[in-house]
Simulated scan of single mutants.
Amino acid sequence: MNKSLPLFSDTIIMSKRCLTLSMRNIDTVLTSLVSPLLLLLLFVSLFGGVIEVGGISYINYIFPGVILQCVGQCAATTAIRVSNDIKQGIIDRFLTMPIKKSSILTGHVLEAMIRNLLTIITLIIVGLVIGFRPEAQIHEWLLAIGIILLFVAALSWSAVLFGILASSPEGASGFSIVAIVLPYLSSGFVPVDTMPRWLQFFAENQPMTPLIETVRALLLEKKLEMNDLLLSLIWFLSLIMLFYVLSRSAFKRKMLK
């Protein structure tokens, strides 16, 4: 029997549990769906007519950044849920069951990816209604969403680690601060060359900027810079591996000692 099958089936079960909890929690629904929509409407309404971004509509320019910012906001839910499971002792019960122990963590990550995919789809639909006009072909859409999901996976594993290390669910809720701020300090909302010189250096060398530029090029059928695409893949594949290893190690130290 393939050893990966029990892990996969256990992960599905765990992710279904997390999805059920999310759908029953009004705070999660507000964070994952309502807040991102309000954020998109706020940016377009307040800044759409006053910020010049090089000949394209402001909503087209900021849309990739809004998606990443909203995904970062949603990541706090994963950190809180992991911390809450530890505090309530439900993980101790899972550890006594005949399941793959790693599925406890991978279930949270899979649920986060599904929940964030729903958020992305909702944002795209609302964006189209209020003026977002992408020019991407189907393969460009798939590549753009695939790269964003790599970012979601990296963010979800880092949220899992933060949830394990946090002393309480309230402390875990602070995880999203970094993920929310980073898109602002990139090319997500204004061109990098309009920033102060010291901030330009940071914006050009942090992972959000090549990801945003890659997604923007794909969705608006602009020239795709392979350097941005490769940097995005290197950044987020590396972060996925790093936080996966750190999460497994922290989980073993805290729960399996």
Rank of each mutant, 00 (worst) to 15 (best):
L117Y: 01
I12L: 15
H139D: 13
S35H: 06
S9M: 13
L39T: 13
F189S: 02
V71R: 05
G65S: 05
G163D: 05
T28K: 11
F162T: 11
L143Y: 00
V34K: 07
T11A: 03
L7S: 00
E170V: 14
I59G: 07
G65V: 10
T214S: 15
L242A: 15
V34P: 07
S158F: 01
M241D: 00
D10M: 11
L39K: 05
A203L: 03
R197Y: 00
S35K: 13
K252H: 05
Y61L: 04
F189H: 03
L143I: 04
E204M: 14
D27S: 15
V44C: 05
L143P: 00
T77W: 09
I125V: 15
D85S: 05
V160C: 08
R216G: 08
P196D: 00
R81N: 14
D228E: 13
F43Q: 14
F94K: 12
T31S: 13
S238Y: 03
P183C: 09
P207L: 08
P98K: 10
V129A: 14
Q200L: 10
S32R: 15
M1F: 07
S156W: 03
F8D: 07
G107K: 11
Y184K: 10
D193C: 03
A154M: 09
S187I: 02
I124S: 09
P191Q: 02
K257P: 09
Q88H: 02
V126M: 10
Y244L: 15
G163Q: 06
L30D: 03
I90T: 14
A166K: 03
L155F: 01
I212D: 02
K87C: 00
A179W: 10
F175Q: 04
P6Q: 06
I114A: 11
L246Q: 12
T77E: 05
Y184I: 14
K222G: 15
A217K: 08
M14I: 00
I104C: 06
S83H: 05
L123W: 12
T209R: 09
